[in-house]
Design a protein around this nucleic acid. Sequence first.
DNA 1: TTTATAGTTGGAAATCTTTCAAACAATTAT
DNA 2: ATAATTGTTTGAAAGATTTCCAACTATAAA
Lengths: 99, 99
Amino acid sequence: MDIKQSSATETEEFRRRIFFALSEPGRYTIVRMLYHVGHEMGCSELNRHVEIDKSTMSYHLRTLREIGMVTTRTQGREKFVRLNTERINAVLPGILASL
Amino acid sequence: MDIKQSSATETEEFRRRIFFALSEPGRYTIVRMLYHVGHEMGCSELNRHVEIDKSTMSYHLRTLREIGMVTTRTQGREKFVRLNTERINAVLPGILASL
DNA sequence: TTTATAGTTGGAAATCTTTCAAACAATTAT
DNA sequence: ATAATTGTTTGAAAGATTTCCAACTATAAA
């Protein structure tokens, strides 16, 4: 059973990116909060619960969005973040529940 | 429900280190290989299956050992690596099976 | 219109990560 | 004793990541 590093499936790539995201305390906290709250949250609400500079928060949320772990919705001047639970569970079943 | 970043439990810390380990392709491949093989492997045997420079391999194995994801045993000039399945499953149940 | 609120972006600084070559130690084989 | 095999370590180079300030856009409120 040989494993070639060159050929990584999309799923594998997504998994690794999830691992990368969760290896950073700030993002770990954000994801954990979103999961436990169980519904979308406004960025500023998130920011009120998680102590991170607002631009750092923005940076982390962009990372999570680029990876595909969250989606966002803008309403007026507020932005709501929603955890993409289904997609994450599809490649790493149960991981969110164990955070 | 507030989450303070300052206080991370040991378990949470271990989880994050596992995520860190698995976010790197080389280590991901090593861990996956060890899991699927299902028993300890000699470093050179590992190196024959996973294409990584030997010193890079050594570096990654040291990281995995420091995190506590693997243990090693030396016999003669060979070194055997064993995945600490129980400990990993204790904090992230089923994660190895989904790699 | 002016001001406040929500969030993004650019850029710089500090730090961390990964990789490899070269030299090394330890063990086994010739 | 010499040579080959196993694996570690050091150190340097290149690159990635995180953080924060300051300036910015856009919407809503006064």
